[in-house]
Design a protein around this nucleic acid. Sequence first.
DNA 1: AGATTTTTGCAACTATGTTGCTATTTCGGT
DNA 2: ACCGAAATAGCAACATAGTTGCAAAAATCT
Lengths: 150, 150
Amino acid sequence: MPRATAATEKKVTDLLKRQTLSVTESRKRILQLFLEQPGALSHGDIEKRAGGMFDRVTIYRTLQTFVDRGLIHTIPSADNAIRYALCKDECGDGHHRHEHIHFVCTECEQTFCLDEVVTPVIRLPKGYSTDQIEILVQGKCKQCTVAERR
Amino acid sequence: MPRATAATEKKVTDLLKRQTLSVTESRKRILQLFLEQPGALSHGDIEKRAGGMFDRVTIYRTLQTFVDRGLIHTIPSADNAIRYALCKDECGDGHHRHEHIHFVCTECEQTFCLDEVVTPVIRLPKGYSTDQIEILVQGKCKQCTVAERR
DNA sequence: AGATTTTTGCAACTATGTTGCTATTTCGGT
DNA sequence: ACCGAAATAGCAACATAGTTGCAAAAATCT
Ligand SMILES: [Mn+2]
Ligand SMILES: [Mn+2]
Ligand SMILES: [Zn+2]
Ligand SMILES: [Zn+2]
C-alpha cells in the first residue's frame, strides 16, 4: 500500500477543496485511508493505520469535520466503536441523505455499505414519526463466503 | 417510585429462579429497574438509578449474565452507549430470537422496543448471508408527539 | 448449621471520547 | 515570496465505557 501516489494525492486534495476545507496532512491521509479501503473504519482503525502520525484528538476532530461536511457518515454498532464510511454524492455540507443498508461480517469483522440495497419503508404505529432509518445486517460477506468455498 | 413492593419483589425473584440464577440484591434491583420502565437502559442509566448501591463492575457483570440467559437484549446505537431491554418469551439460555425494531426518540432520547413492528426481509446481493437484522428508526415517539400537541 | 459454590467489591488497567489552551500550519492578499 | 489573520494540530487533563484478577461476602446445597 503506497503512502500516496500523485494521483490519489490530487484526488484527496480536490475533494477537500471542493468542501472549502484547508488541505492538511491529517485530512489528506485520513481521506486517503477511506479511499483505499472497501470497508468502514473506526477511530481506532485509523489511528493504527496512520501509524501514530497524528494525535488522537486530531483524528477525532477530522472525523467530525468530515461528518459535518458530508464527506463521511457514521454507522452504529453493538460493540461501542462507531464506524465511518465515505458518503456518495448526495451528501453535502450539513446534510446527509442515505438510503442504503450496512452489513457487518461476523468472519472478517468488517462493516460495509451495501449501496445497492435500499432501506425499505417501515410502517410505525400511530403517533410515531420517522426521521431516519438505519438497517444493520449481520452475516457472512461476499469475500468470506468465497474464501470458505475454496 | 417505590423501592420494591412485595409484588414486584416476588416477580423478579421468580424470573431469576426460572433461569436458575442466584437471587441477589443487585440482580433483583436491576431487573426491577427494567420492569418499572418502558424504555431501554444503558449501563450509565442503571448506575444512576441504582444510586450508587452497586459497584460498576457488578452492574456490567449482571447485564452480561442477563444477556447470556436471554432475560435482556442489547440495542446498538450511534452514541457509543449500548442499551439493554427486556426480552419477551422467545429468548432463553444462550439464544435470542428477536424480530422487532427499535425506535430512538430525538426528543426524550429514549429507546423503545416496538414489538408490534416486525423486521422485514432484506434481500442481499449474491454471496452475502444473513444471521441477524437490526433496525433502528429515529424520530419522535408517541408520548413526545402527544406532549407537543398540547 | 456448615461446607461449597457463586457473586460481589475493589484495584488496576485499557479503550473511547471531549475540552481548553497554545503552537503551528494554511491561506488569502500584497 | 512574504506577511498577517484564521484555521488547525498537538498537548494536557479530564470524562465515560468496559475488562480482568483476586479476596471477601453472600447465596445455595446438603
Ligand atoms: Mn454507509
Ligand atoms: Mn428490543
Ligand atoms: Zn467478511
Ligand atoms: Zn420521546
